[in-house]
């Protein structure tokens, strides 16, 4: 298993290199630059600013310099925020996105898993249909509709919570619910599907024949296999949920990484775009690795090869 993990981590290096290279050149070929403004800068001033940030050097040279920097763990200065480094910005925004993602994931799992299991166990009952309807609503209603609706209801009309901001504990509720319920719907559908498949298997019938209680059959025998599709889905989903949701962070004005990433693309903050992409790529690779390990653990047919 350690050989498996070590090999997978080594594979990460070329993957990251390809991603960095592709992103580096792609952002440079996008029209407009970090110093494009609606009031065009006089050429002598633009030249000066570009020299200040090393943008006057040949592109290959900038690329080599950047790789060297990244290898030392320095993601460079932000082009937009003149007094801040990319490391600082990520250091400030990532924990916020992680916290939001953590709560949302908790909501997603706490709602999605039990409902999915229930729907499968009581297939074709009113409970199953109700879960299906709720699931479809959760999947179909985008978060930019659900979020403002929650904010209007609980923030403006009922005044239970703030409609936006990220100051007090209660400010976590609406964003976590909005983001979590959207994922809960997917998790519920997948759990139900996985469970139904497993519940029809021979070994479940065997367990039942041996007189195992229904709870034992569901929780001990079926759930492990039934969760396989959910776990596969969770890999990229967790990476996405943890690095922040642009929409949720915008609707609720949360100082997270997701919004920072999109803003950096709009403002052509080259280093911040690259830094976020590197982080995101690393996180996806790690999450996928964890998923692979979890799948081997859940499914005895798989081996670490």
């Amino acid at each position: 298993m350690f050989r498996f993990i070590a090999r997978r981590l080594l594979q990460t290096i070329p993957v990251l290199l390809v991603i960095i290279t592709a992103t580096f050149f792609m952002v440079r070929f996008v029209p407009g630059g970090p110093f494009t403004s609606e009031k065009a800068l006089p050429p002598e001033i633009l030249r000066n600013i570009e020299a200040h940030y090393g943008l006057d050097q040949p592109l290959w040279r900038q690329y080599v310099n950047y790789l060297g920097q990244v290898a030392r763990g320095d993601l460079g200065p932000s082009f937009k925020y003149t007094n801040r480094s990319v490391n600082e910005i990520i250091g400030q925004t990532l924990p916020v996105s992680l916290e939001l993602g953590g709560w949302a994931l908790l909501v997603a799992l706490a709602v999605g898993l039990p409902l999915g299991v229930l729907a499968a166990v009581r297939r074709n009952s009113w409970l199953d249909y109700a879960c299906s309807v709720i699931g479809m609503i959760g999947i179909c209603v985008p978060v930019y509709v659900g979020g403002p609706l929650f904010a209007l209801l609980f923030g403006v009309y009922l005044q239970w919570v703030n409609v936006s901001g990220w100051y007090e504990g209660i400010d976590r509720v609406l964003p976590a619910l909005t983001l979590g319920l959207a994922y809960a719907a997917y998790i519920m559908r997948m759990t139900r599907g996985g469970m139904l498949e497993v519940l029809g298997q021979d070994y479940i019938r065997t367990a039942r024949a041996k007189g195992a209680s229904e709870a034992r059959i569901v929780l001990r025998h079926a759930l492990r296999g039934g969760l396989l599709p959910v776990v596969a889905f969770l890999g990229p989903a967790v990476a996405g949920i943890l690095t922040g949701s642009f929409v949720i962070e915008t609707v609720f004005q949360i100082p997270g990484l997701g919004r920072q990433f999109v803003i950096s693309a709009f403002s052509r903050d080259y280093t911040l775009i690259l830094g976020t992409v590197i982080l995101y790529a690393t996180l996806i690779v790690v999450c996928n690795l964890i998923v692979d390990i979890a799948q081997v653990w859940l499914n005895p047919k798989l081996k670490f090869e």
Partner: peptide
């Protein structure tokens, strides 16, 4: 100075008295 990057979020915050 409260950061409000979205006009609709801002308007909701105003209505909620924030």
């Amino acid at each position: 100075f409260l950061a409000m990057d979205n006009g609709d979020t801002e308007e909701r915050a105003f209505r909620a008295g924030q």
